[in-house]
Amino acid sequence: MFFFTIRRIIASVLVLLVSSFLVFALCAASFDPLSRYYTLNPRPPESFFNNLRDELGLNDNFFVRYWNWLSGAVTGDFGQTVNGTPVADQLFGRIGVTGRMIIAAVVIAVVLAIIVGVIGAVRQYKASDYALTFFVYILIALPTFWFAALLKEFVAGGINDLFGSQVLYTIGEETPGLALYADGWELWSDRLGHLILPTISLAMLSFAAWSRFQRAAMLDVLGSDYMRLARAKGLTYRRTIVRHGLRNALIPLTTVVALGIGTLFGGAIITETVFVWHGMGEYLIANGIGQQDINVVLGWLLVSAVFVVVFNLIADILYAVLDPRIRLA
């Protein structure tokens, strides 16, 4: 187990290294940090561009640039944005914002997925299974931003009318400026009000796919011989389902969820856009790509890759811990 873990960690670091090189090559080829000066009128003299290129190190050899960037990134220095502020501070702040949204959503989604998946499998081809399947398929087919807009329009409006005050917020992660003078309960309840709708939106969509997965895994397990043996030994139906069935059927879901969290950190872009959260997604699109800011895009992609690789690693190790057969492979 120990060597298995070590081997996987080394492999992950290698993947990250190569990935960082490819990402750097892609970004260096496609983004020009000087692009915003080209359209200035009157156009700055050529010497201005040359000075800037020297200053930003754009005239260096490609590999020197990569090395400079990488050695900075490893120590937590992702360079500066086009506005001269450090990328790292903003990036880490935004991971927190996105994280707030994701953690609650993942917990809700996993619990719902297990319940719905197990019910669907145990009652396969019964009315309740068909009803749940239909519901889940509709959720899977819903366009994320359309569903989120629906929540904003109706759930938020309805609940706020009911309470007669603004309970649910549809925009942003907290009331702007509130953090400057409020703290404790006032600040956190405000954040909670902002959090609920995006969480529901994200949770519903992740849950839908996971529940199908859980249902399939549970069906596999229900057909296995050890389930029949457990029943034959006289265990109650409920006990075989929970102790023997569910325990084993949870193993595949662990992997899927771990992989899902990794991509969600970078990939909650649409939900963030709809609810105007100043999280990772917005940072990439508005500050990174929108401003042709190579350091922002690079930093973002690296952080996102780290999340994906780390959660891949967690998934691998979890799988090996939960299912010892895998270590032999």
């Binding site: 899977i140 994320t144 969509l205 992740s206 839908a208 796919a209 996971w210 199908r212 997965f213 399939a216 895994a217 596999d220 595949p252 899927v256 992989l259 899902g260 991509t263 969600l264 990939g267 909650a268 872009i269 649409i270």
Partner: peptide, 15 residues
């Protein structure tokens, strides 16, 4: 995004 990927994982994994 994650949902779509998970859907396809299901397709591959269950099959």
């Amino acid at each position: 995004m994650a949902t779509t990927q998970a859907t396809q994982d299901t397709a591959g994994g269950v099959l």
